[in-house]
Nucleic acid binder design. Structure first.
Length: 270
DNA sequence: ATTGACTCCTGATGGC
DNA sequence: TGCCATCAGGAGTCAA
């Protein structure tokens, strides 16, 4: 469940349940997810959780000694359970709390990750080259436009590149481009500043709206069915190949771009 | 420095 | 019902 809104909603759902609690045990049930799970994660044992934060699609469980970093990949999700809750298939990792609850990571495809960031260490190598957060003032038309000059890749691949801006996944890249009237196959370097201005605005709008919606569908992470589904979000193009554009009634097209399915309206998007 | 193809892994779905 | 192919919300790595 992994676009930035879903990660942020996960963070918001989990944070109040675990912040301030003491970690009694860290259980690594699956030693290798996307990368090997470092043994240092046990350094968080017997420490309290100071906060739960997010950078890009990484969730940070922060303690005095350092942070356990969790990435949900394509299929990962977090839940807070009573620590005695029976395990399900693909339950890979637990942070057991002294209050009898536990934070549990489930990830069928194992594209997710559990990492460790020691308090004195330089930022994790995977975090060093990340672009700005899309929902902050660091993400501006100016930086996006400047970085785009000379780029020959498609605008869709450009905004999905984590070096350019983080957290724009396949669904919301498609949606933001539709909202902006920009054809996803257009070359990033050939788009005007005025159009990038709209794009930046719409990326912020669609991500913020999705977080808002996720927040209403996913209030209780200890529910069995706390599904943060995209189904609540109103999608204009994603997954609608062959269906009619909601604006102009032209059939929505789909096509693979950089190994990702891409949806657009050939009339509304130029 | 950029680009595009490939890779990790499991599950759901659809065609025959 | 079974078998096979195809496709998934991510993103690092490699070769060119």
């Amino acid at each position: 469940m992994p676009e930035l809104p879903e990660v942020e909603v996960s963070r918001q759902g989990v944070a109040p349940k675990i912040t301030g609690q003491v970690i009694s045990q860290v259980i690594v049930r699956t030693p290798k997810l996307r990368w090997p799970v470092p043994g240092e994660v046990t350094l968080a044992q017997d420490l309290s959780i100071d906060s739960v934060t997010r950078r890009a699609k990484y969730i940070f469980i922060n303690t005095r000694a350092g942070s356990i970093i969790i990435h949900l990949g394509m299929t990962g999700y977090l839940r807070v359970f009573d620590a005695k809750t029976p395990l399900k298939k693909h339950d890979h990792f637990d942070i057991v709390l002294a209050n009898g609850q536990c934070l549990r990571l489930n990830d069928a495809r194992k594209f997710g990750a559990v990492l460790w960031q020691g308090i004195e260490e330089p930022p994790h190598v995977l975090l060093q080259a990340l672009g700005p957060e899309p929902l902050t003032d660091d993400f501006t038309t100016e930086t996006l436009f400047d970085k785009s000059r000379g780029r020959t890749c498609t605008v869709k691949q450009f905004i999905m590149d984590n070096h350019i801006v983080v957290g724009v996944g396949n669904i919301y890249a498609n949606e933001a481009l539709f909202m902006s009237g920009i054809h996803p196959l257009r070359k990033a370097g050939k788009i005007s500043k005025a159009r990038y201005e709209r794009l930046v605005e719409n990326i912020k709008i669609v991500l913020a709206a999705a977080i808002q919606q996720g927040g209403t569908t996913l209030q209780d992470f200890s529910n069995v069915d706390g599904n943060p589904g995209y189904f609540r979000l109103h999608l204009n193009v994603y997954g609608r190949a062959g269906e009619l554009c909601l604006k102009c009634k032209t059939p929505i097209k789909s096509q693979m771009v950089g190994q990702r399915n891409t949806f657009y309206c050939s009339v509304c998007q130029r």
